[in-house]
């Protein structure tokens, strides 16, 4: 019925740090999320790509030394892709995702509370209707497979490629965001009214 106290303690600590970082990163804000999808503020992409590269290197290192197991969700590609497409629509409407919405509760965000109540209903509808579509959802089943398994190459080659690609994207974004803006142009990221936040509010860190 309940997991051990040590797991609950570790979960509380993990959640606390996670929520603290999401709030400091600004990704608990509607504008930051929505403007990522409008391609006006790249905070979300920068944060996630950095986390993926840093996290991936560490987790694969732990795995190589048998200090951690991987936990790969099964690739039911129809379910993964259709689920992702549906998720994107909802995420733009709410301007938060599940983790950032829960964190936003800590900021007394009432829209996030409404969103979380909606999420409960969405989870209920999904559980109740899944039986009708389970055949289709599971029609393409690759199993718990990783890109290195699928492509037959080392995870380190993929992680190195990801790191280089992420670095190139970051350098390009930083240059593009700092480019001089012509007067009267509708150049996107420097529109002062949008609250892009990624530049002007960042502290010395």
């Amino acid at each position: 019925m309940f997991e051990s106290w040590s797991i609950i303690g570790l979960g509380l600590f993990t959640g606390f740090v996670f929520g603290f970082l999401l709030q400091k990163g600004g990704v608990t804000k509607y504008e930051v999320i929505v403007n990522q999808f409008r391609l006006k503020d790249f905070t979300v992409l920068k944060t996630m790509l950095t986390a993926i590269v840093v996290g991936g290197i560490g987790v694969y290192a732990l795995y190589e030394y048998e200090l951690a197991k991987l936990s790969i969700k099964p690739a039911f590609l129809v379910a993964n892709i259709v689920g992702g497409l549906i998720f994107g629509v909802g995420m733009v409407l709410l301007g938060l995702c599940p983790g950032t919405a829960v964190a936003a509760l800590g900021e007394r965000n009432r829209r996030a509370l409404a969103g979380i109540l909606g999420m409960l209903v969405g989870a209920l509808i999904q559980a109740e209707t899944y039986g009708w579509i389970s055949g289709l959802a599971r029609s393409v089943d690759l199993g718990s497979v990783t890109l290195p398994n699928l492509l037959g190459i080392s995870p380190w080659a993929i992680l190195a490629g990801l790191a280089v690609a992420a670095l190139a994207v970051f350098v390009a974004l930083e240059f593009w965001e700092k480019r001089p803006v012509r007067q009267g142009s509708s150049a996107l990221p420097s529109d002062p009214s949008i609250g892009t936040g990624s530049r002007e509010k960042v502290g010395a860190l």
């Binding site: 994107g88 709410l94 983790g99 969405g122 497979v145 290195p148």
Partner: peptide, 30 residues
């Protein structure tokens, strides 16, 4: 929006944290 995104997340088996961070960094195809 919350209802729509959670329908999608539960169909896909995860959201921006489970798939988007934990899963992508393990290089999971899903």
């Amino acid at each position: 929006g919350g209802a729509i995104l959670m329908y999608g997340a539960r169909l896909a088996g995860g959201c921006t944290s489970g798939h988007g961070i934990s899963g992508t960094l393990q290089l999971a195809v899903s």
